[in-house]
Design a protein around this nucleic acid. Structure first.
Length: 318
DNA sequence: TAGTGTTTACTAGTTG
DNA sequence: CAACTAGTAAACACTA
């Protein structure tokens, strides 16, 4: 990577693959699906590098959308006139990048043929249309998830039901998770940033997020609570950071939980720090964490293999 | 007609 | 070193 301080980084190529960039764009949308033109726009808005050679990278991006099973095409409804379809993330593609590199996945996400047909052409469409309707109706998230049959889909939490990201969960592809993601279980919370930097050849989140904020200041900022980068627009719960938890004026250390499930990972109920004490948290954090833990417990019961992933976004008051 | 979507082919880099 | 992933180019079909 070029050294900071020299010229501007804004026209440097971001350290993300097209898959990452596309996923970020999709995850940034309120309905978790975007038409191609809006994906282009998201990328160009945030990464000046992609304001040039548009034909080249947009062709590549379209290739990725078609080629990779992690993206699903959602046909427009009659009340959504326009060109092209919407693109969304496959619910099960959440941990493709669990090795921490957003340039290269640990494995290509591939759905089984039968699932491919069913899931890409029916179930997902059904879900997204349901989600849209429930968003309009303001149904509770768990209710909506059940109705849409998405409760069976472990990685895909129904964000933005009720018009806000109220569950406290963030899809692993959410831009703030991609940019400011925990690295192989490193605890960002009480560790001096400088000491973390010595451990990895590739930037750990603090490095990466510092780099990102210096290269692309319009993308994100450092989260004072976690040392992780978050976009300027959102905190970890999809609301401006100021509104999250500063009632007492003090910063509350947050402990990102390793995204990768480990053999030693205790059950949710066995994690002392997850025994959330509502009185010790600000209201929004209480609600968010409560819902998160509750959903997590639900999901873990039926999908224990996803526990680690689900835990990733739960911020724990230490 | 421009934008969108699919497919094939190739190169380069990474991983096991 | 084989297998894999990412990026790129290009051809072609479809459609608003």
């Amino acid at each position: 990577m070029p050294r900071p301080g020299k010229n501007s980084y804004s026209d440097q190529k971001p350290p993300y693959s097209y898959i990452s960039l596309t996923a970020m764009a999709i995850q940034s949308s309120s309905e978790k699906m975007l038409p191609l033109s809006d994906i282009y726009k998201f990328i160009m808005d945030r990464f000046p590098y992609y304001r040039e050679n548009t034909q080249r990278w947009q062709n590549s991006l379209r290739h990725n959308l078609s080629f990779n099973d992690c993206f699903i095409k959602i046909p427009r409804r009659p009340d959504q006139p326009g060109k092209g379809s919407f693109w969304a993330l496959h619910p099960d593609c959440g941990d493709m990048f669990e090795n921490g590199s957003f340039l290269r996945r640990r494995k290509r996400f591939k759905v089984l043929r039968a699932e491919h047909l069913a899931s890409k052409n029916h179930q997902m469409i059904h879900y997204f249309h349901n989600q849209h309707n429930q968003t309009k109706l303001g149904l509770a998230s768990s209710e909506g998830a059940t109705m849409a049959g998405i409760g069976r889909l472990p990685h895909f939490q129904p964000y933005n039901i009720n018009g806000s990201q109220s569950t406290g969960f963030r899809h692993p592809f959410a831009i703030e998770n991609i940019i400011g993601r925990d690295y192989k279980g490193v605890m960002a919370g009480g560790l001096p940033l400088a000491s973390m930097m010595h451990h990895f050849g590739y930037p750990v989140p603090s490095q990466l997020s510092n780099m990102v904020s210096s290269m692309w200041p319009h993308v994100g900022m450092m989260d004072s609570m976690t040392g992780m980068a978050v976009p300027q627009d959102y905190g970890h719960f999809g609301v401006p950071m100021k509104t999250i938890c500063h009632a007492s004026g003090q910063t509350i250390p947050a402990v990102p939980v390793p995204i990768k499930p480990t053999a030693s990972l205790p059950s949710v109920s066995a994690i002392p720090s997850l025994a959330v004490n509502p009185s010790s948290m600000c209201p929004s954090q209480t609600t968010q964490a409560g819902v998160a833990v509750s959903l997590l417990a639900q999901s873990s019961a039926s999908h224990p293999e996803t526990k680690g992933t689900m835990l990733h976004s739960v911020l724990v008051h230490s």
